[in-house]
């Protein structure tokens, strides 16, 4: 395990914890951006340059901005008086802890069976492009249709209806 991995893992986990725990919603969105950036750097550390830069473009560039917009449009930055956590928070925390315990048990219990190739794979963007329009062309087309319909759907859902407007 390299020190770079530990630094990036700490950054990502700290960002995720802050995103979940902070009281101010805008601060949560900023902490979420830190977690996304840490994940993008982890992808780069794993040699997946294309996925890392796609992560930066899509998550930091688009999703984080969308979240900030939604917070400001819904006046969610005002901290509610009776706390930010649901009254069933204990059950939620217990569920999450149980899920982590099961996942960690499964990973650590099968550590010997996991693959461990030492050689860093060298994959260029050219290879990814060839694969996208060759072997993976059908998923690519489905994703294109999905993104188009999601965009239209999001606009329709968030659109003002003139009759019901007060």
């Amino acid at each position: 395990m390299s020190p770079v991995f530990w630094i990036l893992a700490t950054l990502t986990i700290a960002g995720a914890l802050a995103a979940v725990l902070l009281k101010n919603t805008v601060h949560c969105a900023l902490a979420l951006t830190v977690a996304f950036a840490g994940l993008a750097l982890l992808f780069l550390e794993l040699g997946a340059q294309f996925a890392g830069f796609a992560q930066i473009l899509v998550y930091i560039g688009a999703v984080a901005i969308l979240v900030v917009f939604a917070i400001l449009l819904t006046r969610g930055s005002e901290t509610p008086k009776d706390g930010v956590f649901s009254h069933t928070w204990l059950a939620g925390l217990a569920t999450a802890a149980a899920v982590f315990a099961v996942l960690a048990w499964a990973v650590l219990g099968n550590a010997k069976a996991l693959p461990n190739q030492a050689a860093m794979p060298s994959v260029s963007v050219h290879d990814i492009g060839i694969a996208l329009v060759g072997r993976y062309v059908l998923p690519l087309e489905i994703i294109a249709v999905l993104l188009t319909s999601a965009m239209i759907g999001a606009v329709i859902v968030a659109m003002h209806d003139k009759e019901g407007a007060k």
Binding site: C28, A70, V99, L103
Partner: peptide
Amino acid sequence: ALLFSIGLAGALTRRNAIL
């Protein structure tokens, strides 16, 4: 796994829909 659990805890315990 830790990141997934943190996300799950956030989705299950926060009151704000955006969170």
